[in-house]
């Protein structure tokens, strides 16, 4: 077994909303091995995004801890973790290329070096011809591709993705998933992906973590054994359908 890049131990998170205490996460433990594509699914409001933000070091846990490559996380680690959000959050006054370069620019990476690296990343996400376009000149899917390239800019070993395709129409969404697998296979990154689409989760992942409604905990970790590279046709297969059913029942039965 390869070593784990994310180690989550007995993680709990409680928010105080006025006088009330809201338990978002309860006793979440799991680990993810290097190079894997792991997806977390669960109903809306189950604490998926909170979990991701804790792993990213953006929010502190109430109990428990997260280790990234063995190091306990307490603040963002941009050289180890790249992030892609549901909204691409591109800077509207910068071109696609300048957006990808932005994290490196802040770190003082020399212009020619970062330009070369980021042009290659834009090429990887299929936007070579759009380097000089501004975000408003790109489609939703293209903007999210720029955001993915930007997430890869600091060459982190781990990419965290928070429902990155949720705002796209189904066709672009399917295509983006397919292309993301291609990028993942080429770069060998570890991907931790959040979605509420079961189909997307199963199609993309080596393993699907199923989360309960709030307070969120991991109900089950399901290995997805379809061979890679995967074709979209597997979505219609019987094996795929039965996994989807199983996950669906897990979530439905955990409803309070």
């Amino acid at each position: 077994m390869s070593k784990s890049i994310i180690q989550v131990d007995e993680l709990g998170k409680t928010f105080s909303a006025g006088r009330a205490q809201v338990r978002a996460l309860a006793d979440v433990s799991f680990s993810i091995e290097e190079g894997r594509f792991v997806t977390l699914v669960g109903p809306s409001g189950c604490g998926k995004s909170t979990l991701l933000q804790i792993i990213a070091g953006l929010v502190g846990p109430t109990t428990g801890e997260v280790r990234i490559e063995g190091e306990r996380i307490s603040a963002p680690m941009p050289d180890k973790i790249g992030m892609v959000f549901q909204d691409p959050t591109l800077l509207p006054w910068k071109t696609a290329l300048a957006n990808v370069e932005f994290p490196l620019d802040l770190r003082g990476v020399e212009r020619t070096v970062r330009r070369r690296r980021c042009a290659a990343l834009l090429d990887l996400v299929g936007l070579r011809e759009f380097a000089d376009h501004y975000p408003h000149e790109l489609s939703g899917g293209m903007r999210q591709r720029v955001a993915i390239a930007r997430g890869l800019a600091q060459d982190p070993r781990l990419i965290l993705m928070d429902e990155p395709f949720a705002a796209l129409d189904e066709q672009s969404r399917t295509r983006m998933g397919h292309d993301l697998l291609d990028i993942w296979e080429k770069t060998g990154k570890t991907v931790f992906f959040i979605t509420h689409s079961l189909t997307e989760a199963i199609y993309l992942s080596d393993r699907v973590l199923v989360m309960s409604p709030r307070p969120g905990r991991i109900l089950e970790s399901i290995a997805i054994e379809f061979p890679r590279p995967r074709e979209l046709d597997i979505i219609g297969s019987e094996a795929f359908g039965s996994i989807r059913n199983r996950i669906w029942h897990l979530i439905a039965e955990a409803q309070p």
Binding site: L58, P78, M83, F102, L106
Partner: peptide, 24 residues
């Protein structure tokens, strides 16, 4: 708020967040 979350996630310092994100 998403812009500030993004800025922190890429390790932007406080002065950088003001000068490169908030001000523009």
């Amino acid at each position: 708020h998403r812009f500030l979350v993004f800025a922190r996630s890429i390790g932007a310092s406080r002065p950088q967040i003001y000068a490169r994100i908030i001000f523009p």
